[in-house]
Amino acid sequence: MTLMSFVYGFLAILGAFVFQTSLTGINRKVTARLQKRRGPKWYQQFIDIFKAFSKSSITHGWVYDFGAIMALGGIAATVIFIPVAGFQSFPGLDNIFVISYVLAVGMLGMAMSAAGSGNPWASIGVSRALTNMLAYDIPFMVIVFTLIYQHQTGSVSELAALQQGAGIWGWNAFQLPLGGLVAVIALFGMLGKKPFDSFIAPAEIASGPMVEYGGKQLGMMFTLHELMTFIEVSLILNLFFGGGETLWVYLLKYAVLYTFTNIVSGVMPRFKIDQAVTFFYKVPLGLALVQGLLVIFGGWGY
């Protein structure tokens, strides 16, 4: 842990933000083209975020601000943990459980801040978001357990490195096809993409946790969303699609994976939250358990 680590960490946050925000803008254009529209400029997402920062804002008490800072701070810290193409600012901190639990700090902060605004829509949104998390995380965790058992390591960068070298068939998504499928479905839940976006349903619960945010807090929430997307897509990319040998390969794979989820979610309706839970516990959890049993007792993947 040297001073350079912190500088690299800061650059990682900045890079992740710039890359993911551009990608979001491009994907807004992609979605628009799907719907036969022209769509916004590719840098529209930047304008939106900076505009939010440029406006005046309100606060509902110290926990409203503190939660927002804790949320974005926690998520920004999590970005530092993510290994990108084998590079880490702080080597040795990329344990999969650490990443997925540090991520929870940010989510807890956001939930706290939203509930602290005193708006019932926000609380309903948080309740749905947490339920959604309980739904998608269990199948994902089962697959993660399987991976750790199979490779006897919990380090994300090592798991990514183990898949490289054997071409596309070395990827876990193809080595453990059921697990790969589960991970991609779970990615939709993580990103809050349709059909699992009931916790931010704008017309139903007035965008849920975001309901009271305006001005700089809204800008922070948008930034948080971009960073969180980066973390989640990176996690799936590293665990199941072999990470990247070089930065450019990594970013290219990342863009393809993210655009894929975006296109699929562009043509999906929305699940009710209890339907989402039932779906995740029926299909992906079943597949994940089958995959896990095959690996552990059937010796698949050795």
Binding site: S56, S57, G73, V211, G215
Partner: peptide
């Protein structure tokens, strides 16, 4: 430490931006 670093960065960002106006709890979107 890393968590504290992230928190500190965002705290600075938050403090640099204009101050928020305090409103009551009941002044909320209904």
């Amino acid at each position: 430490t890393v968590f504290g670093f992230g928190f500190l960065l965002i705290l600075i960002l938050f403090l640099v931006l204009p101050k928020s106006r305090r409103v009551g709890l009941m002044d909320t979107y209904t």
